[in-house]
Design a protein around this nucleic acid. Structure first.
Length: 513
DNA sequence: GTTCTAATAT
DNA sequence: AATATTAGAA
């Protein structure tokens, strides 16, 4: 292995960090091994290759502590990828990335369930490879937010072949040249922060706590309390977020239907590209299975804040309260209605959000927790229609309607993929479903609608844990949990429960007649 | 001098 | 399209 080049440079807070990521690559197929290895090296990882999983384990034993990550093929004769993963996790506590041409959801799910960190469908793209470092052990402090911006143009097939040739003939001059060019372009611009849904949720949470009017980059950064994130990162994101708010304010609630249909179109185009599933790194269950991830919990400690209505009590959470928070200055606004206004473009529901997977379907449900009125959905037996009845006793609207029809009236439901489905009677739940493999997890659609933000490359998928018929309440990341905890506070925070404008968005104006 | 924000670059 | 960078205002 060449020790001189192959460095992965990350820019973090104006300082250059140089981190070597050592990857053990296992694949019985020689061609595949060569290609993937070349791609990894192109992205400046340190790679050791191995044709046999048995020998791979020997290598790991011989060089204990040397590797940060194992990337393995799934189908191998002596020992398959999952067996290897099990052994690697048990013996070395190393993260394992699975590769396979198999894109059957059942296979992908099985792998993730077994504890694989990431599943890449072959043929592997350079984008896949660029992401790989995030699952390595080494750059702990940066893993969740900073990605090295390896400004390499996607090589054409010809270039890839050329690259492989130069690899084989060890054309070092050319390689060194390429490396230098790449590194100089890396040094020029900072690594991009990937605003994942969870990071964005944290951003929104911070804004809620501060108040939209007082939310400026420095303060948001302080509240977000995410190591490595800079004021500039937040400023940039805030700018985008404000543009989104403006757009929503200008178009008004009626036109947000248009936003919805735009989203579904976005989804359709995404659905044709191949799927990537990301492990739910932040769920406690996942973390408990992977000791090396426990540190991450501290890294992304949930925002915590005292509830003014609960006195000195903190909302139950294992982590200590955010020391940056000043109750007197920051939370007084929560006692009036401004939160409702704030919530509107973000997360209008006073309830719990979960997404899960059941059989071949993704589903997302929003459950209204407001005890004083809200939306009630009754199962009318038609799976892609929803019936809603508002609690009349509490001064809201009432009536039955088929929401899906209203929203998707001009669309072919089959094409759109996302359908509204009703839930158990009395559950106060709106649920959405789509088909795995044909469409993106509908959670991303909801993210787009509620938060004006959708990170298409990071589709997350949750497994159902309960029985067959019930949707499980698996939190979609730690920030969702934080936000649900906020919503569990007394309803004075969001006086109306369901937001009328949002209901119009989903259910159409006819529902209010 | 620092931070914010609109504009602009990548 | 998303994020970083910059320049001038606050």
């Amino acid at each position: 292995m060449d020790e001189e080049d192959g460095r992965c440079e990350l820019v973090l807070e104006s300082r250059m960090l140089s981190v070597d990521i050592h990857i053990l690559l296992v694949d019985d197929d020689a061609t595949s091994l060569a290609v993937v290895s070349a791609m990894l090296r192109l992205c400046k990882y340190q790679v050791v290759t191995q044709r046999s999983p048995i020998e791979a384990l020997d290598t790991l034993r011989a060089k204990k502590g040397f590797f940060d990550l194992v990337v393995t093929d799934l189908h191998m004769p002596q020992m398959n990828g999952l067996q290897l993963q099990k052994q690697v996790t048990k013996e070395f506590k190393l993260p394992v990335i699975m590769m396979s041409a198999d894109e059957k959801p059942s296979v992908i799910l099985k792998s993730l369930e077994e504890g694989v960190s990431f599943y890449m469908v072959k043929p592997i793209s350079l984008d896949d490879v660029k992401q790989v470092w995030q699952y390595a052990i080494t750059p702990k402090q940066t893993r969740t937010i900073i990605r090295p911006e390896l400004s390499i143009d996607k090589p054409s097939k010809k270039e890839m072949i050329k690259l492989l040739k130069s690899e084989r003939t060890k054309n070092k001059t050319k390689k060194a040249k390429e490396t230098r060019a790449t590194q100089s372009s890396i040094a020029k611009r900072k690594a991009k922060v990937v605003w994942t849904n969870s990071l964005h949720n944290r951003f929104l949470q911070a804004i809620r706590l501060i108040g939209l009017d007082k939310a400026v980059p420095k303060k948001i950064l302080e509240f977000m309390n995410v190591p490595g994130l800079t004021r500039e990162n937040v400023a940039s994101h805030l700018q985008k977020y404000r543009i989104f708010l403006k757009r929503v304010a200008e178009k008004g609630a009626c036109n947000s239907m248009k936003i919805y249909s735009d989203c579904t179109l976005l989804r359709s185009s995404f659905a044709s590209s191949h799927f990537q599933f990301q492990s739910p790194l932040y769920t406690p269950k996942f973390q408990s299975q992977h000791p090396y991830l426990l540190e991450e919990q501290q890294l992304m400690a949930p925002l915590n804040y005292p509830s003014p209505l609960l006195g000195a009590n903190y909302i139950s959470h294992p982590t200590p309260p955010n020391p940056n928070l000043e109750i007197e200055n920051s939370l007084t606004h929560l006692e009036n209605q401004s939160l409702l206004t704030l919530n509107k473009p973000n997360f209008p529901f006073n309830g719990l959000v979960s997404s899960s997977t059941r059989n071949d379907r993704n589903s997302v449900s929003i459950e209204n927790e407001n005890p004083n009125g809200g939306l009630r959905l009754n199962n009318n037996g038609v799976s892609n229609h929803v019936q809603a009845t508002h609690d009349h006793n509490n001064g809201g609207f009432s009536g039955n309607f088929e929401g899906t029809n209203q929203v998707l009236q001009n669309k072919n439901v089959e094409e759109n993929g996302v359908v509204l489905v009703s839930s158990k009677e009395g559950n106060d739940t709106i649920a959405f479903e789509d088909k795995i493999g044909e469409h993106q997890n509908c959670f991303d659609v909801l993210s787009e609608i509620f938060m004006g933000h959708n990170h298409h490359n990071q589709t997350s998928l949750r497994r159902e844990e309960m029985g067959d018929m019930e949707l499980s309440h698996v939190w979609n990341g730690i920030e969702m949990e934080a936000s649900s905890k906020q919503d569990l506070q007394p309803s004075s925070f969001s006086a109306q429960g369901w937001d009328d404008d949002m209901l119009r968005t989903f259910l159409g104006d006819a529902s209010f007649s």
